[in-house]
Design a protein around this nucleic acid. Structure first.
Length: 865
RNA sequence: GCCCCUGUGGCGGAAUUGGUAGACGCGACAGACUCAAAAUCUGUUGUCCGCAAGGACGUGCCUGUUCGAGUCAGGCCAGGGGCACCA
């Protein structure tokens, strides 16, 4: 009996695939095309288990599709721009490009160890000038089309480090390095008009049938289409008010609950609203409040969880339908300038946030919707606003209406009176793409004092990043790089400066899948290649990208379609979102994190490998560097081989769910690797035995084995198609056990040996997408010269997949009392007869007689007595 | 705070989508092989009552719909993901 040597076999078969170039793909074929893509990695330096899981899933699918006669595109590249490279530059004094390309080399080598069926000839990194050259061209086309534009927007500003901070770099309102209080600062920045596509992006979701419902729902909510009313309040400024003369006299609001207008008790405007700005200029305490709002984070979560604060401006808004009813106008920290008009009216009775605000500032609370079943007399709002269904009260001409009726009636009345109109509003905001950083795609614009923002002429593209930069000072090195920055204007020839902002890395990842179709194309997208390959048939990646990356990619693809670059509007026909990889966390007696790879189990106690000191086991969390609970796949592959690691990440846990990495789990996968090899090896011994060939077969046993093999083909095929890899794994465990026990029963004769050969080959073929190296080795051992990677997928014989007899449970009043065996698709009457004749059922029924018998064919019988 | 997801034995999970809850694996226990250990093989393994036959309970919690609910509806609880400059 031979033992499987993963190290030798894996190197051997990787070379065999490579030498024949079988994973290199042509841009045309008689076969149907299939484009499988996993979200490309950020080159952080090391592959982590999450990558292995992601790429293994894609590889299973790619290999399966190849075997089922598809022309498969399965490429790999690098999402290579971003902040970590600049952080490394600051901390380790290494150039971002050098750091990034070294990481790519290291990670490419690691990925190749996994044995992925990737067409490496199409590889590129987004930081390659050959890639971002085309991104710059696309950007200029977007400028020309009016999709890219400039406007002022706020950023997080660290006054000590003199730099813009990402939201994740703001911790409790302070800069992560300097600890200084973060300010908001206005900068002129580039935006992409994704809002022009809001309705389109929303409608397109309906066609994405092979996307998870939850992702479509999240995007729907993110786009946030609502219908409501936009209308104008008349403002009155009391005599002697500090803001005398600055008020524009009116205030525009947007509401989705026009029906509750009679319950309004205040108005509120954002601190960034022009009215708030105007008042702040005249009133010092208003300015103090606005400044305070400015110190809050820019993230929505920070705004929503912050204490709701307001500043009473002393100005009033006149209620449009109640003469003399004046609503105080507040500046409030929870009103977003970005949404609607940046101003609202508050109806505390029916909105929890408004209610909290009203209670805090002593404003009246008038219920205007009466819950069904309540009486108007004495109905009051307590601590909870009522946002359910009901009928209007206290609302004059709306009284007695349902909420939808009242919304319509109020909108009609406002339109007729001429101070407002019904409108559709989106929560989606335009996409700010300017980043004040070096390590990104330069924005190909030249700012000229006389010509304005001038596009860099196409012949001058790409605008490449200068290499000679230093990170010893804070801020963007491009801004102080005069030989790069100072240029002459392409239009007038006068002195001008380059745009020093670079593009958001989400732009890089919004069209890379198009570039893979033909990475050498002289245009951003080769028409023939992209028409052939797009859309991506199956995209696979983390659910954390469910909104931003996927929405931006859908948007850019639509824009490129409108610009004539691609033929499709939707880039990803199928989407699968995988779960994360988690691991236990460990701390030492000082409460410091202990690296998971340094922890061993000594007699059940977790201890540090070197010191033997006991560690405390913390919760199972997503693998992260900060918690030191990462496992380096390279170490595991060295120890067990790639197939074992691939098998583990596919086993047990459904792909969409989080998986926990455990030492026991990888051990179990390793034992199975050896068991599978042994099973095929043993089978081979029987098949080759001249002695066994002379014996006489038990036809029944041979037939049963064939049946098991063909059922496995049907099951595993369905499981791979349906992304149920964990179940495919379970089916392969079963088939292995079946073949193994057949081996143990001394098979002989033509029929048994033929069945055994078929079953062993089937087992190897079905395992191949998951354990490609071992499968090739076993396939070769079974006497095949042709590569398994080039062999067709087995086909199940429908006659062998069918059951001969079906076990049906029989229930009495919903409780299982017996099991009967019947022929498949036996008539209901017959089944009922057999069920009622069963001894256990007679006993269970006792004195009672059946009142009703429900027979679900091939499933269950329920007797109601 | 808002949006989305998840919750089943000691553990990972399965359940043909409303029809026998616990497939398959891990762990544990018992046995075989071995001088011994490892490896391997065989068997048992949701909980409770019972010698057994058998019975009761059981899918985070509560309520409901149904002949029948892990699955559907309503209300909670707990954990996770996203929230627009992390990728």
């Amino acid at each position: 009996m031979s033992r499987y040597n993963a190290r030798v076999a894996e190197a051997k078969w990787q070379k065999a695939w490579d030498d024949k170039g079988i994973f290199q793909t042509e841009n045309s074929s008689d076969k149907p095309k299939y484009y499988v893509l996993e979200m490309f990695p950020y080159p952080s330096g090391r592959i982590h288990i999450g990558h292995v899981r992601n790429y293994t899933m894609g590889d299973v699918l790619a290999r399966y599709k190849r075997a089922t006669g598809h022309n498969v595109l399965h490429p790999m590249g690098w999402d290579a721009f971003g902040m970590p490279a600049e952080n490394a530059a600051m901390e380790k004094k290494v150039h971002p490009a050098e750091w990034t390309y070294a990481n790519i080399d290291a990670m490419r080598a690691q990925l190749k160890m996994i044995g992925l069926s990737i067409d490496w000839s199409r590889e590129f990194a987004t930081c390659d000038a050959t890639y971002y050259r085309h991104q710059q061209a696309i950007f200029l086309e977007l400028v020309k089309a009016g999709i890219a534009y400039r406007r002022s927007a706020q950023v997080n500003w660290d006054p000590v480090d003199q730099t813009v901070l990402a939201n994740e770099q703001v911790i409790d309102g302070r800069g992560w390095r300097s600890g200084a209080l973060v300010e908001k600062r206005e900068l002129t920045q580039w935006f992409l008009k994704i809002t022009d596509y809001a309705q389109d992006l929303l409608a397109g979701l309906e066609s994405l049938e092979r996307w998870p419902d939850k992702v479509r729902l999240m995007q729907t909510n993110w786009i946030g289409r609502s219908t409501g009313v936009h209308f104008t309040f008349q403002l009155s400024v009391p005599d002697g008010h500090g803001a005398q003369g600055v008020s524009p006299g009116t205030l525009d609001v947007y509401t989705t609950r026009a029906d509750t207008l009679f319950g309004a008790s205040f108005c509120a405007v954002s601190a960034d609203h022009p009215l708030a700005q105007a008042i702040a200029e005249k009133m010092p305490d208003a300015k103090a409040f606005v400044d305070k709002c400015r110190q809050m984070g820019t993230s929505e979560a920070a705004l929503e969880t912050a204490e709701k604060l307001g500043f009473d401006t002393g100005i009033f808004a006149d209620h449009p339908f109640v003469a003399g009813h004046k609503l105080p106008v507040y500046i409030a920290n929870f009103v977003l300038m970005e949404y609607g008009t940046g101003a609202i009216f508050g109806c505390p009775g029916h909105d929890q946030r408004d209610l909290d605000f009203a209670r805090k500032y002593g404003l009246p609370v008038t219920p205007v919707v009466l819950p069904d079943g309540e009486t108007a007399d004495g109905f009051e709002i307590g601590d909870e606003a009522f946002d359910g269904d009901g009928r209007m009260i206290n609302s004059e001409f709306l009284d007695g209406m349902t909420i939808p009726e009242a919304k319509k009636a109020m909108a009609d009345r406002i339109e007729k009176a001429g101070f407002g109109h019904q409108t559709t509003n989106f929560r989606l905001r335009d996409w700010g793409v300017s980043r004040q950083r070096y390590w990104g795609c330069p924005i190909p614009i030249i700012h000229c004092p006389s010509c304005g923002a001038v596009p860099v002429p196409d012949k001058d593209l790409p605008v490449t990043l200068p290499d000679d930069v230093s990170f010893d000072r804070p801020g963007n090195p491009l801004e102080r790089h005069s030989t790069w920055k100072d240029v002459s204007c392409p239009q007038c020839g006068g002195d001008a400066t380059r745009e020093t902002d670079t593009l958001d890395t989400f732009v890089d990842s919004s069209w890379y899948f198009i570039r893979f179709c033909d990475p050498a194309s002289a245009t951003p997208a080769d028409a023939a290649a992209s028409t052939y390959w797009l859309p991506v048939d199956q995209y696979i990646g983390g659910v954390e990208h469910a909104i931003l990356h996927l929405l931006y990619a859908r948007f850019i693809t639509r824009a490129l379609k409108d610009l004539g670059h691609v033929a499709v509007a939707e880039p990803f026909a199928g989407l699968f979102t995988q779960g994360m990889v988690c691991h236990e966390t460990y701390k030492d007696k000082n409460g410091d994190w202990v690296p998971a790879e340094d922890v061993i189990h000594d007699g059940g106690r977790p201890v540090q490998r070197d010191t033997g000191e006991e560690v405390t086991v913390g919760p199972v969390e997503k693998m992260s560097k900060s918690k030191k609970n990462t496992i380096d796949p390279e170490h595991i592959i060295d120890q067990y081989g790639a197939d074992t690691v691939r098998w583990f990440v596919l086993s047990d846990t459904p792909p969409e769910r989080d998986i926990e990495w455990t030492a026991a789990g990888i051990e179990g996968a390793w034992r199975f690797t050896q068991r599978l090899w042994r099973t095929v090896d043993d089978a081979n011994g029987h098949i080759a035995s001249e002695e066994a060939a002379k014996g006489t077969s038990d036809e029944g046993r041979a037939a049963a084995l064939r049946k098991a093999a063909h059922k496995a083909i049907a099951d595993v095929t369905g499981d791979i198609e349906g992304f149920r890899f964990n179940r495919a794994v379970a089916r392969l465990y079963e088939l292995t056990s079946t073949v193994q026990s057949f081996n143990g029963q001394n098979p002989q004769g033509a029929a048994e040996l033929a069945a055994l050969k078929e079953a062993a080959e089937t087992l190897v073929q079905l395992a191949a997408p998951m354990m490609p190296h071992l499968a090739e080795e076993a396939w070769s051992a079974l006497g095949h010269d042709r590569l398994l990677a080039d062999t067709d997928w087995p086909v199940a014989d429908p006659d062998l997949v069918k059951d001969d007899v079906i076990k049906m449970a029989v229930q009495v009043n919903g409780k299982r009392r017996a099991e009967i065996e019947v022929a498949p698709d036996l008539g209901k009457d017959k089944v009922e007869e057999i069920a009622l004749g069963d001894e256990a059922i007679k006993r269970a029924l006792g004195e009672k007689s059946p009142r009703k018998v429900i027979v679900v064919p091939n499933r269950i019988v329920n007797i109601v007595a």
